[in-house]
Design a protein around this nucleic acid. Structure first.
Lengths: 197, 197
DNA sequence: TATTGTAGTGAACGAAAGATCACTTGTCAA
DNA sequence: TTGACAAGTGATCTTTCGTTCACTACAATA
């Protein structure tokens, strides 16, 4: 039960930090959103900063087990259509999964203030996706689905436009439908450019 | 002289907001950085929020006159090397110009809190660069430097990877040299893919 | 049943925040 | 020379912040 409340505090903190940032969040509101009085939080965490660090620990651990390990790499698609479908599934998840969206927003807001947030932000926004697509494109070249080229360069050229559209969704959620359309259109353009017909 | 101090306050605010965010900035420190005592600021602005709004006004106006008008579009390059050179000049400016860097950081930090910041962020990070390159690529296609394709799609595919590397520089300045190298490498790859030999 | 530890309460604290105000200084126009 | 005004000072106000503490309720254990 104590464990449970500690977890609930982290969830509430992720929610508030992602909307108002660390400095913009206060303990009163945070406690109130859990049905607690403000001092109640201090039974579980020593300070606001400790909550922040615990949240970052959790985000880092989550990223590590979810995206950091090789066995979580998606299978290499067997056809262009399968590649599109895989991209759209991933995009849909990363754009709509609340936990992931909030994590991106927090990292966006705190990347200049906290070194660990800075590091994790680069993984989330740049290197993570790029490495994943490097692996996929390498496999697709082996299967003769993509023209032979530097897979890391193609991955960078593919991942960053998609990442830009994901950021757009975080910033202006009303443009989500359009952004998803553009991800698909861009993917098809990418295949038309680099695919083997 | 009053005008001068008002301007100096905005400069100091841009500096502090870009480092600590709006909520993380306090009037005491802001005044102190100008050699004023905290109440001195209130002779020029009614409140912290008014400073924020004035700063945003200035950022919006600056963006409008700098990037918003058609006559500030760069000339269409006449050769692949000229295209690379133009890109590298622009990248160098946008990565090293302090005012521009601080503006991007402020927009990054406040995009979820302020609607005007949200809008300007999308221009800075996505639509602005894309529209500019749409124009350039369109011209390069006319000159036979680029294969015929959708210039807006190409512009999106070119601008967003560069934008991702610019964000990387903002977040981790020690990676600036590497990022600039990658911008050039990506540009050459882009030309190798879409250029007419 | 008695005891002990845990989760939560409500009052209170000091520090720091944004803002106000009476006052001084210096500049410039009448 | 004088009057008015703009710019800056220092004390002070109110509010809110993060945090502490004595206390209560209650569940689990011995």
């Amino acid at each position: 039960m104590a464990k449970d409340t500690k977890e609930r505090i982290l969830n509430a903190a992720l929610e508030m930090f992602s909307q108002k940032g660390y400095e913009g969040t206060n303990i009163r509101e945070l406690s109130a959103s859990l049905g607690l009085v403000k001092s109640g939080i201090y039974k579980h965490y020593e300070s606001k900063e400790e909550i922040w660090n615990a949240l970052l620990d959790r985000m880092i651990a989550y990223y590590g087990e979810r995206f950091g390990s090789p066995e979580h790499l998606p299978p290499v698609p067997d056809s262009p259509e399968e590649f599109i479908a895989m991209t759209m599934r991933m995009a849909d998840l990363t754009i709509h999964d609340e936990q992931i969206v909030k994590t991106r927003k927090v990292l966006t807001l705190e990347q200049f203030r906290d070194d660990r947030a800075r590091e994790l932000a680069t993984k989330h926004f740049l290197t993570g996706l790029t490495e994943m697509f490097t692996h996929i494109f390498s496999g697709m070249m082996d299967k003769g689905l993509l023209r032979l080229d530097d897979p890391a360069m193609l991955a960078f050229a593919y991942a960053t436009p998609i990442s830009a559209l994901i950021h757009l969704c975080d910033r202006e959620p009303e443009k989500t439908a359009d952004a998803i359309r553009r991800i698909e259109a861009f993917s098809r353009h990418f295949l038309a450019t680099y695919g083997v017909k």
